[in-house]
Amino acid sequence: MTEALLEVKHLATEFITEQGVARALDDISFHINAGETLGIVGESGCGKSVTSLSIMRLLPRPAGSIVSGEVLLQGQDLTRLAPEEMHHIRGNRIAMIFQEPMTALNPVYRVERQLGETLVLHNPQMSKDEIRAASIRMLKRVGIPAPERRMQEYPHQLSGGMRQRVMIAIALLCEPEILIADEPTTALDVTIQAQILQLLKDLQQETGMAIIFITHDLGVIAEVCDRVLVMYSGRIIEQAEIHTLFDTPLHPYTRGLMNAIPRLDKPAKQVLSTIPGMVPSLFDTPPGCRFQNRCEYAQPQCRATTPPLEGDSDQHQVRCFRFRELMH
């Protein structure tokens, strides 16, 4: 087996707040290979965005911090790097795009300056003309019509879809090995979402970058990912190759999620299956399995000890004591 491009080992992240300490990530381990798309799916507050911020070392300070674990980028532990060294990783080797490009783009700078800024930061030797040419080339590549004109516009003059394309252009300027996409299409209309998903797939084909795709939408996951992590309340509860996950979801939560979506290929107006109750508060997590209070299969063992993430193969792992019984 070749060495993974990025490997996260037993990562734990905590936030210190007025209400106490919240363990937002607990024992997160996964890897991603070059050219692969890894999906992270889960509902609000499950820790999917905190995972990406922890990898990038962008947790809000001083409240949030990584308390244990390693983030290995080709063997180099990012959690131990000095802030200046981390600057070279961000943008150059791992880049990120966000859900709402309006908050990630600077509203008072023209598109040209936002692209140029990134290039100058990472390639101080580039001339002005080179920067301009590279920026225009990049805008063209992400499918922006009339890039020369768009360079002179401000973010508010662009539509949501165009802004997301500009964000992708900025992220890809330094040819990162990994792109973290945090709900990049959630704020977009479906027809524009389809365009952006296609664009990301095409760019990945061209550059061979790995993509970590964070979303709450299982439809989007099915559309773009090779492998998926399902998160719940700060933990990975299932991890599988994409077809395996959709064919044989094992964790009761994953199954619940899949059955709860209204689908075009199922009859309308039927009662949707639901997951009763709510996600536990991070300040008040129960010992043992975090899903126990909503799980129809819970038994005393689930309330006492945390189930390990295990499986019969590397292809499919699940954090549930009873997964073998539930397989059939």
């Binding site: 539509s159 879809g161 165009m162 479906v190 027809t191 524009i192 979402q193 389809a194 365009q195 998903l197 296609q198 939408d217 299982l218 439809g219 989007v220 996951i221 099915a222 559309e223 990912c225 994409i242 077809h243 959709f246 899949m258 979506i261 689908r263 075009l264 290929d265």
Partner: peptide, 21 residues
């Protein structure tokens, strides 16, 4: 209708259904 992502990896779209905004 063609743009809705279907939660089934075997039915991935192979085209962009609609151009422009």
């Amino acid at each position: 209708i063609a743009s809705i992502p279907v939660p089934d990896p075997r039915r991935r779209k192979t085209f962009t259904p609609l151009q422009g905004e």
